[in-house]
């Protein structure tokens, strides 16, 4: 705690200790006064994880790891037991690499830094692009949005409204245009104008439609013509309410484009987004941001600890059997 005092972060500390106090009440799996891992405990944990969309295989792995780790052990307190469980789960979540900073203030490795946003239909790509633009703009970076969703009706108009709200320029050619050419224009303009960040909004596509996935790969290739390293990041936007299919989505998208991280949206609802544990484990993809609402400010940096806590949190008693 002295660490926080030194940094003068007393407010953060306060917030944290508050979290600690209520944690015990909020965690769904703690049977009162339990300090050892028994069958009842494991079964409840399993239910909670499955109910949070973690998926059967990953759930069983977590349960196995915890069984193994706690063999013959008695924990001093519920908190200690909880912490052990949470640590096991946190382990599954990889962190974003240094080349792809999560913090909007952090210096970027290239200028312009091209970020491509991809995902299935209705995941929340356009809204996420707007939020990212807003955050980079707030951090003093010069941003341009490339409206490369030229397929969906009125996608450009939607993005234009968002861009205006964020006070960021947008480049687009309207419905039916070639998305790759929009990207080329945007990147060229960014180079000549000294823009820091190019955010490329792409059309939603289901990962099992190969011709649409090929189109993504083509957009990437065209971006590379102008800047060989581009796109520097590819963010896969994942609807937080999605179930097991999300793994398949991530798998397919990574096959066609070099996905560097995830944006998990719609976590302001009751869904927990537990499937990212499976994605992180299988594909080594970090979650970078989470979407928690429809307003331009509703984007948060991903925090492993709070995510895991939320995952195990009791909500309206629904985790109870």
């Amino acid at each position: 705690m002295g660490f926080f005092d030194k940094l003068g972060l007393s407010r953060l500390k306060e917030g944290l200790s508050k979290t600690r106090d209520t944690l015990k009440e909020k965690l769904a799996f703690v049977s009162k006064g339990k300090t050892e891992v028994d069958d009842e405990f494991l079964e409840e944990l399993e239910n909670i994880l499955v109910a949070a969309d973690v998926g059967v295989e990953t759930t069983l792995d977590i349960v196995d790891a915890i069984t193994e780790r706690s063999k013959g052990k008695t924990y001093r307190s519920e908190e200690e037991l909880n912490e052990m469980v949470m640590e096991e789960i946190r382990k599954l979540l990889v962190e974003s690499s240094h080349d792809h900073p999560v913090d909007f203030d952090a210096p970027l490795s290239a200028k312009p830094y091209v970020i491509m946003i991809v995902g299935v239909n209705g995941a929340g790509k356009t809204t996420s692009v707007a939020k990212l633009a807003h955050n980079y703009d707030k951090a003093g970076k010069k941003v341009v949005i490339a409206a490369a969703d030229t397929f969906r009706a009125a996608a450009y108009e939607q993005l234009k409204i968002w861009a205006d709200r964020a006070g960021v320029p947008i480049i687009g050619q309207g419905q039916g245009a070639d998305p790759a050419s929009v990207v080329f224009d945007s990147v060229s303009s960014a180079v000549s104008k000294g823009t820091d960040v190019v955010l490329v909004d792409t059309a939603g596509r289901l990962h099992n439609k190969s011709h649409l996935m090929e189109e993504l790969a083509k957009i990437m290739r065209v971006a590379k013509k102008k800047i060989p390293e581009a796109p520097h990041e590819v963010l896969l936007v994942l609807d937080g309410t999605t179930g097991q299919n999300a793994v398949q989505q991530a798998r397919e998208f990574t096959k066609f484009v070099n996905v560097t991280g995830l944006v998990v949206t719609k976590l302001d609802g009751t869904s927990k987004g537990g499937i990212v544990l499976s994605i992180s484990r299988e594909l080594n993809l970090p979650v970078k941001y989470i979407g928690v609402g429809e307003k331009i400010d509703d984007l948060q940096l991903f925090d492993r600890s709070s995510f895991v806590e939320a995952l195990l949190e009791k909500e309206n008693g629904k985790a109870e059997e």
Binding site: V50, A51, A52, D53, V120, G122, D239, T241, T242, G243, Q244, N245, A246, G269, T270, S271, K272, I275, K318
Partner: peptide, 12 residues
Amino acid sequence: VDSMMGQEAVNT
């Protein structure tokens, strides 16, 4: 409802 939806589909 999105057919890809997970466990919360029921509660929703």
